[in-house]
Amino acid sequence: MADIIYTDGQGRIRSSRGKKGGAGTVVAAGVLVLGLVGSAGAAGGGGVFGPSASGSAGSSGVAARKLDGQKAAKRGDRDGAWQRLGMRRLDDRWQRQVECLSASHGEVREFFAHTPCTSLDRVVIAVGDGAGNNAVVSVAWVGFRNTRDLRAFKRIEDRHGSGDIYPLGASLLGLADITFTGDNYGTDVDGTTITVAEAEPAAGHVDRETLDALAEVAAYLPRP
């Protein structure tokens, strides 16, 4: 049975853009409203979706913040990683299990049927800028026996329409669902572990570049 880990509100605890559209997977979006009322924007102001970001900052601004966020994530500074993008963590849910077959679908599931993973850790994270612009981020850390198996998995996982690992969400939170399309996608490889991250908007306005950045930063988060 999987161990479900709930974190508190204090933040304890390379990448390729765009994956597959097709049949998306679903996660609870209602978590994104938690903690928003009365919360202040992160990184000292209106957040990444305020006037300073939508106009003058442009693509180069998001790219620079993404690199800073990835550096923070690699250091293990999870909340700092979001802050580099003008966001703050609102809530998260974690789960750990030792097999991947039951947590996957499509060609990804077929792969796991003959090449089992050795571990699977997943988290769904709600982030927002304090001004009603919110996103949900799914991250999965998948362990393999060797790098050959990992590379074979990555070739399938990166391909459009190949299936996926289910994100956490509705089964834990019992809230309204949104669809993960795979359009905002990041991966990172560390030894025999691959991290797969995806992001989707949930409320307000979150532009595509920022969603990509959220996924690509999340792919650098350390395994729990």
Rank of each mutant, 00 (worst) to 15 (best):
R96C: 04
Q95A: 15
S162P: 00
Y166R: 10
V137D: 02
V136H: 00
V124W: 03
T118H: 08
A152H: 04
L175A: 14
T181F: 00
G163P: 02
D158L: 14
V136D: 02
G169K: 10
Q95R: 15
D121T: 14
F111P: 06
D92Q: 12
L168R: 04
L150Y: 09
A135F: 05
L150T: 04
A170W: 06
F144D: 03
R109N: 13
N134D: 13
A131D: 03
V123H: 01
V108C: 08
I156D: 03
Q97C: 12
T179I: 12
D158K: 12
E110K: 14
H105C: 09
R122Y: 02
A176R: 12
I156R: 05
C100D: 03
F153G: 00
S119Y: 02
E99I: 01
L168Q: 07
F111W: 15
I165D: 01
F180R: 04
L172W: 04
V123N: 11
V142I: 15
S162T: 08
L101G: 04
H114L: 08
I125G: 02
G106K: 03
D164H: 11
S119P: 04
N146T: 06
V124D: 15
A131Q: 12
A103L: 08
A126M: 00
A176M: 05
A176D: 13
L173R: 10
V108W: 05
V98E: 15
V127G: 04
G143W: 07
R148H: 06
L175V: 01
D149A: 11
E99Q: 14
T179Y: 03
G128L: 01
H160W: 10
A113E: 14
W141N: 06
A152S: 11
R148S: 10
